[in-house]
Every structure is written in structure tokens, then in C-alpha cells.
């Protein structure tokens, strides 16, 4: 572990081979927070706050683009992910909830439609349980965060370098577009950082037992989107969320794996748009 390397690699955010868009920056309690925002007619439309998962940062994905045709899409990057640096404070879900409440307020958005995918699904559920009055609707896409004794998550930290994406995607053609060069040192270091943040948040436990009770505070409608064959987070988690959330419906996008947002961006976006706009868009 001698210090034989070029420090600059730590500061670099490698540019993905596709879909990169330079983010906006806003300082939230001292932390430069990266986000991308786009909506129909220069920002009209229902505000949708999209909380990303443990992968595929830095990109303006086709899902986002399609959503932005109909809603005011706000896609921030979590502290320690993408172009938002790792904060100096201890990272946990409570801190992230406060971070995003401040973020929401600073953007001048009073109430949001909250959408979370994977890790972001858990975070969205946490946010909604603390700030139910700020949430107009809640959409969870292949979310984690609940305990199902008979359906433990597979341990993604044990998987070989390409093992995570191999399991996330059932449609390999979609995979190639968003995965980066496995031989790029910069990209490997960058992902080490993101996965370290992910580990800080979820290593143990990989659920919050209080969520099932706290989510009962919600008055808004919820939509849970599950994949057809999720090999990262058991489908039963999505079903359990749909069961416990007041006023929830469950939908499945056919022929998808965990990377549902990338495998079927149009169907996923349309399901969200329909739910958020009440079918009016």
C-alpha cells in the first residue's frame, strides 16, 4: 500500500461512453450536490424527484429523457455517488433524508412526486415516512429496504467485477450501452468509491425494520414497479411494499431484470407518467 499513484485519479469523474450530460450544482449544507433537471416547455410539469440506485450515475438515461417530455424531472446524485462528493459527515439514511429535504426546499419545490429505484427506492420510502406531507406520490422501482426472512438479498459485494451487471440485466443488449470499460483504471477506482458509499449505507442491516410501521403515515398514492425476473432484489420485496403501503398498486414490466429502468425505459417511464399525471399526459 505504498503511495505510488497519481492523486488526480481520486478527483476525476470518468465520463461514461454514452448519455453523459454535465450536471447542475447546488450547495446543500456545504456539500456541492450534482443534479440534472429537465421538463416539458422549459420546466413546466409535475415535479418528479428521481432517486437513483447503486449504479449508472453521471448519465442522462433514456428513461429520464422520456420522463422529462411529460414531467419536470429532477435527478440528483446522492452524496458519494456520481459527481456529488462523499460528505465529511457520517453517511446514513437519516442524513440523506435531511439532505434531500433541504435540496427540495432549495429548488423551491414544495411537494414532489418521489420516485426511487433500487437503493433509491429504499431512500424514497425513508423520505416519505419522515416527510409524508412533501410527497404527492411515491413510486418504488425494484426497491430494497424491507426484511423478508425467506427471501434474503443476494450479497452484491461478493460478486465478481462484472457479476453485478450480469445479474442486473436479463437483456444483455441494454447492458452494453451503460456499462463502462472494465479495463479503465479511473472507472474502477470511481466505482470502488461508489460501492464503498453503498456499503456504508447498506452493509448491515440491509433493511430498516421501522419502515413498515412508519410508512403507515403516508396519505398519498403509491406505485410499486417490479421486474419480471429480478436476480438482485427478490420480487417479493416489491410485493411486500405494495402490501404495506396505504393506497398502493403493483405493476410488473414484462421481460425485465433488476435493471428495469435501462432495459425497458419507455414502458417504465410511461407507467410513472401515467401514475403521476393521473393519465392526463
Amino acid at each position: 500500500m505504498t503511495e505510488i499513484f497519481d492523486d488526480s485519479v481520486l478527483e476525476q469523474v470518468p465520463i461514461p461512453k454514452q448519455y453523459y450530460v454535465e450536471p447542475n450544482q447546488i450547495e446543500i449544507a456545504g456539500l456541492q450536490t450534482a443534479y440534472r433537471r429537465k421538463g416539458p416547455d422549459g420546466g413546466n410539469g409535475e415535479p418528479v424527484l428521481f432517486l437513483h440506485g447503486n449504479n449508472y450515475t453521471r448519465m442522462w438515461l433514456p428513461l429520464y429523457e422520456r420522463l422529462a417530455q411529460s414531467v419536470d424531472l429532477i435527478a440528483p446524485e446522492h452524496p458519494g455517488f456520481g459527481e456529488t462528493p462523499t460528505p465529511p459527515w457520517p453517511l446514513n439514511f437519516d442524513e440523506l433524508v435531511l439532505h434531500y429535504d433541504e435540496f427540495r426546499e432549495r429548488l423551491g419545490v414544495d411537494e414532489v412526486h418521489l420516485v426511487g429505484y433500487d437503493l433509491g427506492g429504499w431512500l424514497a420510502a425513508e423520505f416519505a415516512s419522515f416527510y409524508p406531507r412533501q410527497v404527492k406520490s411515491l413510486t418504488l422501482i425494484t426497491p430494497m429496504g424491507l426484511r423478508l426472512p425467506d427471501h434474503p438479498l443476494i450479497d452484491v459485494f461478493k460478486l465478481p467485477p462484472d457479476g453485478l451487471v450480469q445479474r442486473e440485466f436479463n437483456d444483455k443488449s441494454a447492458m452494453d450501452v451503460v456499462t463502462q470499460d472494465p479495463n479503465s483504471f479511473e472507472e474502477t477506482v470511481f466505482r470502488y468509491g461508489e460501492m464503498s458509499t453503498f456499503g456504508t449505507l447498506v452493509w448491515a442491516p440491509r433493511y430498516n425494520l421501522a419502515l413498515e410501521r412508519r410508512l403507515q403515515r403516508l396519505k398519498c398514492p403509491s406505485l410499486v414497479i417490479q421486474a419480471e425476473d429480478d436476480r438482485i432484489i427478490p420480487n417479493q420485496l416489491a410485493e411486500r411494499y405494495a402490501e404495506i403501503l396505504p393506497n398502493a398498486s403493483l405493476t410488473q414490466i414484462p421481460e425485465t431484470g433488476h435493471a428495469i429502468c435501462i432495459e425497458r425505459p419507455e414502458e417504465t417511464a410511461d407507467a410513472i407518467i401515467k401514475f403521476v399525471t393521473g393519465g392526463s399526459s
Binding site: 505504498t2 499513484f5 497519481d6 492523486d7 477506482v189 464503498s196
Partner: peptide
Amino acid sequence: IPDQIFFPKGYMSKASWSGVASAMIKH
């Protein structure tokens, strides 16, 4: 031991980890 099990993410800081990885490559 596969690398991801030898060095679970976060066990070393990003700086230490990239130091080790680049030293291993370089030497």
C-alpha cells in the same frame, strides 16, 4: 481469494485502494 472478497468496498479508503491497485500494476 477473489479481489472483491479480499478487499470489500470501503475496507480501504478510495485513496489507499487506488494506491495499492496502481502499485500492484506498476510493480
